[in-house]
């Protein structure tokens, strides 16, 4: 079976600095994979390479067997590679329903229509309700996004991505900045992700990582240090030293 997402020898230099160093990573279909590493390890650069914000200096990226190394950002989304952002990137003036509705219209290819209203297609309405129910946003679907509590906004961040119909979803620190009391909602949101969607999770909250991910890769100074099951990684002495050790002390 082809891997959902695969990179081989991915390398990115900024001047003399190597931000991503020879990274080869494989995500199987439906995987729950986490990417961890200390600050400055190059996690965000890697996401930017995968989504096409940055071009790699060398190396290759495949999405379901198709080479997407040089594909445009919008096209990668069409092919099913969707991301969320560490800092909320929402539409503050839209309601959750409208935001999700736009993404659904896009996926159904209705977004170029200039003369029908956005809700006139029952498929759009149906899929919006599906996504909003899945992430428990139905009760706030008609409130302006800017007025939602932060935790709900983080969920909407994921809901919009799911509305794009991803095959592979890249979650960039979904729990970043979420207060302790609202973390449960994020965990529920992650649990509600469709099983057939392959997920790469970047997260600092180790509790979340170990509860969610079945495989973990550790990135240090742009290069992969260890990859394995949650248990293997948790018990790996090198990981303890460079990452968990640091965390415990600092």
């Amino acid at each position: 079976m082809t891997a959902a997402l695969q990179t081989r020898n991915l390398l990115r230099r900024f001047g003399g600095l190597v931000a991503t160093n020879d990274v080869s990573i494989t995500l199987e279909q439906g995987a729950r994979h986490a990417l961890i590493g200390p600050n400055g390890a190059g996690k965000t650069t890697l996401i930017n390479l995968l989504t096409g914000v940055l071009r790699p200096t060398s190396g290759t990226i495949w999405l379901a067997g198709e080479d997407i190394t040089r594909t445009s950002r919008a096209r990668r989304v069409e092919l099913g590679l969707v991301r969320t952002f560490q800092i909320n990137q929402l539409f503050p003036g839209f309601t959750p329903l409208q935001s999700v509705g736009l993404a659904v219209s896009r996926r159904l290819g209705l977004d170029r229509n200039m003369f029908r209203t956005i809700g006139s297609d029952p498929r759009v309405v149906g899929e919006c309700v599906d996504v909003l129910e899945r992430f428990d946003l139905i009760d706030v679907m008609n409130r302006p996004t800017a007025s939602l509590p932060y935790g709900r906004q983080r969920l909407l961040e994921i809901a919009i991505a799911i509305a794009c119909g991803p095959r592979v979803l890249l979650l960039d620190e979904p729990a970043a900045g979420v207060p302790e009391g609202e973390r449960g909602e994020i965990m529920d949101g992650l649990a509600a992700l469709p099983a057939d969607v392959t997920v790469l999770l970047i997260e600092h909250d180790m509790d979340l990582v170990f509860r969610f991910a079945s495989r973990i890769s550790v990135l240090v100074q742009g290069a992969l240090l260890v990859e394995g099951t949650a248990e293997e990684v948790a018990n790996d002495p090198r990981v303890r030293e460079v990452y968990l050790g640091d965390d415990a002390h600092g």
């Binding site: 919008a74 977004d111 794009c164």
Partner: peptide, 8 residues
């Protein structure tokens, strides 16, 4: 940024 990230 987000608009381009939903494929538009």
């Amino acid at each position: 940024l987000r608009t381009s990230s939903i494929g538009i």
